[in-house]
Design a protein around this nucleic acid. Sequence first.
DNA 1: TCGTATTGCGCAATCGATTGCATTTTAGAA
DNA 2: TTCTAAAATGCAATCGATTGCGCAATACGA
Lengths: 341, 341
Amino acid sequence: MKKEKATIHDIARKLNITASTVSRALKDHPRISAETKKAVQKTAQKLNYQPNHIAAALRNGKSKIIGIIVPTADRSFFSSVVRGIEEIANGSQYNVMICQTYDNYEKEVATVEALLNARVDGVIASHGKETQNFDHFLKVKERGIPLILFDRSNDELEVSSVVIDDFLGAYKATEHLIQQGCRRIAHFTNTRKISIFKERLRGYREALLDNGLPYDESLVIESNLQLEDGRNSAEQLLKLRERPDGIFSASALGIVGALQVLKENNIAVPDQVALVGFSNETYTSFTDPSLSTVEQHSMRIGNAAAEIFLEEVNADQKKFIPQKIVLKPELIIRQSSLRKK
Amino acid sequence: MKKEKATIHDIARKLNITASTVSRALKDHPRISAETKKAVQKTAQKLNYQPNHIAAALRNGKSKIIGIIVPTADRSFFSSVVRGIEEIANGSQYNVMICQTYDNYEKEVATVEALLNARVDGVIASHGKETQNFDHFLKVKERGIPLILFDRSNDELEVSSVVIDDFLGAYKATEHLIQQGCRRIAHFTNTRKISIFKERLRGYREALLDNGLPYDESLVIESNLQLEDGRNSAEQLLKLRERPDGIFSASALGIVGALQVLKENNIAVPDQVALVGFSNETYTSFTDPSLSTVEQHSMRIGNAAAEIFLEEVNADQKKFIPQKIVLKPELIIRQSSLRKK
DNA sequence: TCGTATTGCGCAATCGATTGCATTTTAGAA
DNA sequence: TTCTAAAATGCAATCGATTGCGCAATACGA
């Protein structure tokens, strides 16, 4: 019931000093005597004083909050990135505000607006699949606060970003399939307007060509890469006269769908068809056979993004040079692609 | 580069009126003439005015932000709850601030502190496994803002909560195993200090007794219920002279671990050992065989929690009566427990 | 035409913390 | 003991939006 909130003024009154002094004492200002500081701290405790960040934020123009925008937190990849951001941010007294857009463009725009109105000190985001127009992100830049994109980035926007080398990840995955003896490798991709998928497709293609295999458009299936899409794509592949002997999916769910369909059709994985997905989601190791996949080191992506934020928020008005950090992905080989020699 | 933020004062100056009028006009105050309102809105647009929520929050003592505390967002259960909360909250102009504690007590305490300092208007939380002491949550109550607990709740704290009927979920799961012919059913549980696990254990036990089966302590294995724990527990069960013919796990990961071990030992699931888990995580349907589990209707939990928040935040100082909403869980029967008759 | 409502808007304080610029106090130097 | 520099603290404005109260202008009824 006692909801009296103590302010620095209450502390000041108690000690017959002014709020200015209290404020400085609490921040360990050099011009305040040691005893005053002690006295202030003591009464602050006694009164159960809790700083009002809102007031400080208003005065300083800094909320000490980083806004994070992700399509959904319900995925190992994104939640690890968030965790990576938190690790760094918390060390610098920053808190994060996580917002999910559910891959909905309107929600994304509204979220940016909300974060801006909440006066976050910066935004770290991965945009949704629908996002074609980036004006809402431009607003962040216009506000003069750092904007860092990760995973799905956009080069038109001149902002820093942290991505993985999707090309390399796809290249490794495809090359691995080839090494396992696959000669007809299919690829599940999403719209080529999103750079990560474009890059993965490119990596797939290059790997094929570099290994003397043809690039066959009929083996590249475009979809939304969800579970059902993966199933449909797999079924489509089964109807081909010449069936593929390997599939590399640009998503994790997509390859799960494919695995299901293959098993339902009594097609041996990996012996008849070997599978590799993308993104090391929890469930990829729970299937039978477990799924080979490309690990994106999501925690590190988060770390890097937060570090860039800290740099930019401090450098502030300096000549701002957007940087792009590209992390190397790693191929995790599990049963779905490992053929016994 | 243009980071001039327009305020209501800028609008006022432009129109030769005062900020008061602008403020009222923007809020559609009845005492402001229609033309003034139009003029204000027009110039607000022209100046690209964005309300400063921080200033309003300071003045009103309301931030329009709900703090959400979850152990981790990286689980279907929690992220669905969050989504459920957002659904309701956004409809009432509230934003959410999601914080993860990673089941770490210190982090949880710090998080509550941070949310309080950020002046959230309420907190919706599910505490971590380590949490024994609830003083940090008491602080929320003392601040006079709504606190709603979900899933893992605590009865000592006199706050509203939204939970599922864990007893019933466990009872149904166990009964189902019995109906499938299981006569020796093991149970994976966590520390009995956490009510959800206590209740699930109770449901398991009652179902056994109600069906004339003995309750055997040696079949109840306590662990942290993660993947490895499930594996260890299963191995422990295999060493018994009389092996169980069914396992009901109080977690989703635990049963995955058990499934892995059983398969590695060539024990047929569900025919030799039938399995049921708890919580409808994505991966439970990806295993082979797919796992039966207890669906918690997490989205609805979130809805309910947010609704309670709205009620309480509006009722405010009224006689506050904590309410407890108990939702019915649902048993999802998949291959891991469905024996062909 | 006068008096009372009603409408429309301005004044100024407020929310709590911060900070540049005094002002006062203390310490040390001359 | 007096003067000055340094140390410690106070004053007051500020951040931007909100709101109770008050005042002026217009409307309306008698």
